[in-house]
Amino acid sequence: MKFICLKCESYLLYDMQEKIEESIGITFKCPQCGYRLAMIANAGETQLVHSMGIKIGGRTSPPEALEMTRTNLDEGAETGIDWSEEAERRLEQIPPFVRPMAKTGIERFARERGYREITLPVMEEAKKRFMG
């Protein structure tokens, strides 16, 4: 799906996305006049894209093996902890080989502290604990 700026006769390009509760807001921008347009995908629509194993805007590193399957399985121990969009992106910077270890470590830390969502500040906090 694409949007077109009819004034400039040009495709709007993907600009950024943000998580708004269960929905996701995606912003597009006209490369010529700078016109911006935002669309909201609800929880169901977001899940649909996610269940295809696709990240809007592309990936910063290749997916881990069986990533979609493993991250979407609702398994007792894994539930209750969400990752914010920014935290997830930050996690992707970690080399794939050690990523699962880092992920479980941070989730365990968050669980101990009673956090429901892992955000950038939570990651910082966890980092301090692991490094210190």
Binding site: K2, S10, Y11, L13, Y14, I56, G57, G58
Partner: peptide, 9 residues
């Protein structure tokens, strides 16, 4: 227009 795939889908 050329169809851009900058969302990398």
């Amino acid at each position: 227009l050329e169809y851009p795939d900058e969302a990398r889908i």
